[in-house]
Design a protein around this nucleic acid. Structure first.
Lengths: 197, 197
DNA sequence: TGTACATCAGTGAACGCGCGTTCACTGATGTAC
DNA sequence: TGTACATCAGTGAACGCGCGTTCACTGATGTAC
């Protein structure tokens, strides 16, 4: 054997990362302690040296799943500042639709989280707020109304396109919503609430 | 005891309805054969006189869950013809958000179905096509682009509002998306693909 | 209409299985001297 | 630097539990005469 204290932190990290990926790909219920530990080459008993319970792990893995998705789309996009159109095209790309395991966790998990406990909903809610805030900044708006609309359409379209996966309708869905959202980018195509500025 | 042949069909119907409701409220994984049968006052052994397996039941209950949601929103709305604005306002109402058990099955189950087998995805896909077709007719459009956009935003907004459930942001989400979608109803606010007609 | 029998909807004990969790244990890592 | 001991990351057998499914059974329903 041979397990240093430094290695423990790496183990915890591998467990958490693997759980986050599995959750995005196959949902919360697909994660079992035994199979998860096996997939990072450890045995089930060791799990409880890292997490208090499966439930504890799932909450932390949800946070991680959301953070990874945000890092790869929103924040990365914002770091090298790109425009709203690129953000939308990236989010509604075939690549994103086809890579549940690495993509945004919101469409992948929204149904599950919507019926989960208040803590899980709060975790996802804070990331949704982040997405809305990003969209608002990219749109240059002062309120969230257009940003909320955009995020709704993006999350809805990506989730729907994954159900329509096998037909050309899936591509049409991504394409249609992408085009129309980008048209939103032109200032005041749709008026704000009362168009008082 | 006393179980006539006519009662058998009623039992099957009660099992299927209860399963559809439970699925919309708590997801596929929440349905167990034993608890399901208990909730319709039968014992678990009798289940297999009605369905070949739990998997078989779940496929049929998905169809039922989707059909009930459609009946209560789209088709009912279309029977006594109402306009797009009423359809949207009804779909994005607080009442709909707060009644997962009786509401549209698409936002309630989309994440689960997006990672399910091809058969389940095909079942939901056909209902999504139905929603798109309804929206297209209500919008008076000749192609599906605006309808796809509208359905994406509606499904996305309802699902998101359920995650944001506890805050006033949930209401704002429904309100914002509702208002902006209804603005779409004005012909050619957003141009179709290439505005050739 | 009444009797004898077949059918079959629903019952509940039993099964094998995978699950989350516990715990006595192992042996390399880390530390005190 | 070397020795003796403590720590503790990871192991794997064992647990109780709920699950899906099977099956011998029960007794009212349905039917043939």
């Amino acid at each position: 054997l041979g397990h240093s204290q430094a290695e423990k932190e790496q183990s915890r990290e591998r467990i958490l990362k693997e759980a986050a990926d599995q959750i995005r790909e196959n949902g919360f219920d697909s994660v079992s302690v035994g199979k998860l530990m096996k997939s990072v080459n450890l045995t089930h008993g060791g799990f409880y040296g890292h997490f208090a319970s499966r439930t504890d792990l799932l909450a932390k893995a949800l946070t991680r799943a959301l953070a990874d998705g945000v890092n790869r789309s929103t924040e990365e996009e914002l770091a090298r500042p790109r425009d709203f159109a690129s953000f939308v095209r990236n989010y509604l790309s075939h690549a994103h639709r086809d890579s549940r395991k690495t993509g945004c966790a919101v469409p992948a998990l929204i149904s599950d989280v919507s019926r989960a406990d208040a803590q899980s909903r709060a975790i996802m809610a804070s990331y949704i707020e982040g997405y809305i805030a990003s969209a608002r900044r990219q749109l240059g708006d002062e309120d969230d109304t257009r940003a909320m609309f955009a995020i709704s359409a993006m999350v809805g379209a990506l989730a729907l396109s994954r159900v329509l996966e096998d037909s050309t309708r899936s591509d049409e869905m991504l394409q249609s919503v992408s085009e129309q959202l980008i048209a939103l980018n032109a200032p005041n195509v749709l008026g704000h609430s009362d168009s008082q500025d």
